[in-house]
């Protein structure tokens, strides 16, 4: 169960418009009728990529060919709010994203993403807006997130980003999937279970 540390993510980035992008929007509920996560990639942001009435592609940035190879998502405030569905970050990784930069993240989404090894870093609106503008202007701009120094660089742009210490440490140590460590503490788990009368 050894997993590789994640210290740096680089690639081109696509700016996503809007605030409070909820997980229903990232992956509409009707695509959650599945027993594996495998096919979810193609449904990421489905209802904003395709006009619900005509079925035609919209002018959403994810439909813009210039962003086809983007692997970093740049978003606004409270990204991933709403349902706890892991289908949301799963659909994003399967779509091809390997990191998200946003003004802020909803808690459950954040935790789900980190566990999948999808780093989510935040910065203030000014920095995010500047990055969005730079990517919109130059879709081939290389964006790099360094979790060691907690900075994002993109061309002339460079700013510091935030991430809770525990998540950062887990990614840097390759321990973002906690299962091994959880399992290792089996004795302590059993002791706790015994101490709880309702588990008993």
């Amino acid at each position: 169960m050894a997993i590789a540390p994640i210290t740096q993510v680089s690639g081109t980035a696509v700016p996503i418009p809007g605030a409070d992008i909820d997980t229903d929007r990232i992956i509409p509920a009707r695509f959650m009728k599945c027993v594996t996560f495998d096919g979810l990639g193609e449904y990421a942001f489905y209802d904003v990529r395709f006009d619900p009435e005509s079925g035609e592609k919209t002018d959403h940035p994810l439909n813009d060919e210039r962003f086809n190879s983007a692997s970093i998502l740049v978003a606004g405030i409270n990204f991933g709010c709403g349902s706890s569905r892991e289908h949301a970050p799963q659909s994003l990784t399967k779509y091809g994203f390997s990191a998200i930069i946003a003004e802020s993240f909803a808690e459950i989404f954040y935790g789900n993403s980190t566990t999948l090894g999808l780093p989510c870093v935040s910065s203030n609106r000014e920095n995010i807006d500047a990055l969005k503008a730079a990517c919109a202007e130059n879709p081939t701009l290389q964006v790099s997130i360094d979790l060691d120094t907690m900075t994002v660089t993109a061309g002339d742009l460079s700013f510091s980003v935030n991430m809770p210490a525990s998540a950062r440490q887990a990614l840097l140590a390759g321990k973002y999937d906690p299962i091994k460590e959880l399992l290792d503490n089996n004795d302590k788990i059993e002791a706790t279970a015994t101490s709880l009368s309702y588990v008993g």
Binding site: S84, R85, I108, N112, T115, P164, S166, I189, A193
Partner: peptide, 20 residues
């Protein structure tokens, strides 16, 4: 707590999860 599917796995396997 509401949790994601990987955490559902963690709880099934260990009856515990990592939490801040």
């Amino acid at each position: 707590f509401g949790i994601g599917t990987t955490q559902v796995r963690d709880v099934l396997a260990t009856q515990t999860m990592a939490m801040e």
